[in-house]
Amino acid sequence: PESADLRALSRQLCLSYHRHFPLTKSKAKAILSGKTHGNSPFVIHDMKSLTAGQYFINCRQLPVLERQRSVLPPEEPAGELELSVFRRLQFRSAEAVQEVTEFAKSIPGFTELDMNDQVILLKYGVIEVMTTMLAPLMNKDGTLFAYGQIFMTREFLKSLRKPFCEMMEPKFEFAVKFNVLELDDSDMALFFAVIILSGDRPGLVNVKPIEDLQETVLLALELQLKTIHPDCPQLFAKLLQKMTDLRQLVADHVRLIHLLKKQEVQMCLHPLLQEIMRDLY
């Protein structure tokens, strides 16, 4: 493809990234660096602030309704702190799966792929994309949550009882390293598309068209990184290496969720997440 076509593809995916994801890297960066002019997130660092923060989240659901989301978190049943945090996290995750799906559909050529292959690409790619999407929301001290309205500290998450305390720590470790790459919104958009279009997922029937699409996105990503980050010639290679780390991270995450399902009597996994994680690794 001509470089003009590749640039057009980058622009298109970046637009789609802004359209489908409520908290982009640039927005998260502004919040985390305190550049939002008096609109800083509510900090959750202990049980007391968690209780206050939950009320705070409920009070600020308006932007969600404005985006015509019909699904709101269910009324919080009384229960253990850890399970309550987990319920909120998985509700947001299910919403994020929908956002990633809409993003995938906007990748040129994706919806023309075999329908079962589209399902497999999403099933395997969605948690990798979501984990990567989490990185800009994090710094070494904590993570943004609830569309950037909440900042939950890493120490608080680590203080939850086992195995809940083990859930976020590997994501922080990944995020701190990933954020060093200093990608911008358009780089992120292309990287997500590369992850989704992985032709080596188990069970794919028609691999060739997937690989062809990925090849084009990879060319666009390489060109873009060379143009935007000329001072870092290794960036493209470094970014591709992250895909290996992501697979391991997701495999560990899924193992942990399966363990939780066995151990926690009260835990109920969201049907969409259940569907994705069943027989995945």
Binding site: Q68, A94, E275, D279
Partner: peptide
């Protein structure tokens, strides 16, 4: 297809919100 019916629905239906 039955095993991934919500994903199928998400992929096929772009406008109406999916009842989860």
């Amino acid at each position: 297809k039955e095993k991934h019916k919500i994903l199928h629905r998400l992929l096929q239906n772009s406008t109406s919100p999916v009842d989860l």
